[in-house]
């Protein structure tokens, strides 16, 4: 279980502080898939960063009883002068996982071939995303954060990702952030809508969906 209570966050700008989140209450239970819908700039990424622990809120509390992944397919944490394998080593060390045991899986899944032993700098963005996704699967998290990854690689690779994330790891919790209600609808048990820094919860996917489409109209 992960529970956010009364979470608020503001950022200082040249024209004064801007409140991004305001008294947000949010809970995700084990094995649950929850979608977070919101327009661009609604604070989705801020919320994800707070849930992942990359950022701390100004007010409110977070109770984490599950291990939480970094946002899936996030490539920004790569040290691009190091090789794919060295980046894998770093992640494994940070999370206390044996590296060597996971090299075959990453080789097979990322389909990077000899490039796995080349600096990440030489990768295309698609190759980086493939490596990032493979690394995320090496650490067995209780809860995966999925931040608009819908477009990783070609359709065959997307199918592989879907298999890993939603079939093999169906027992895990997932928090999926998107402005695409169709994706949320097909992957989540329920959804919340982020609007003007406040979070609106709904009992059913349909309620969240109709609220969101009305809001966008």
């Amino acid at each position: 279980m992960i529970r956010l209570s009364g979470v608020s966050k503001s950022y200082g700008t040249a024209s004064g502080p801007v409140r991004v989140l305001q008294g947000v209450d949010f809970q995700v239970n084990r094995g649950e898939s929850v979608g977070i819908l919101g327009r661009n700039g609604a604070g989705k990424s801020t919320l994800i960063r707070i849930i992942s622990g990359a950022e701390t809120p100004d007010a409110g509390t977070i109770d984490r009883r599950m291990s939480v992944s970094w946002p899936l397919a996030f490539t920004g944490a790569f040290q691009t002068s190091l090789t794919g394998i060295d980046n894998l080593r770093f992640i494994c060390r940070v999370y206390g996982v044996d590296t060597e045991r996971h090299i075959p899986y990453v080789e097979e899944f990322s389909e990077l071939g000899v490039y796995l032993r080349e600096p990440v700098r030489s990768y295309s963005s698609g190759m980086q995303a493939r490596l990032a996704f493979a690394l995320s699967m090496v650490i067995e998290f209780d809860c995966f954060l999925i931040d608009e990854i819908v477009a990783v690689g070609d359709s065959r690779f997307q199918a592989k990702c879907h298999e890993e994330l939603f079939v093999k790891r169906a027992d895990r919790a997932r928090i999926i952030v998107s402005h695409d209600p169709g994706y949320i609808r097909s992957h989540c048990d329920r959804a919340v809508v982020l609007q003007g820094g406040k979070l609106h919860a709904f009992d059913t996917l349909d309620d969240a969906y109709s609220y969101y489409t009305e809001m966008m109209a």
Partner: peptide, 9 residues
């Protein structure tokens, strides 16, 4: 900064 996405860092 991006390493902060790993919660233990």
């Amino acid at each position: 900064l991006s390493l902060l996405y790993h919660r233990n860092v």
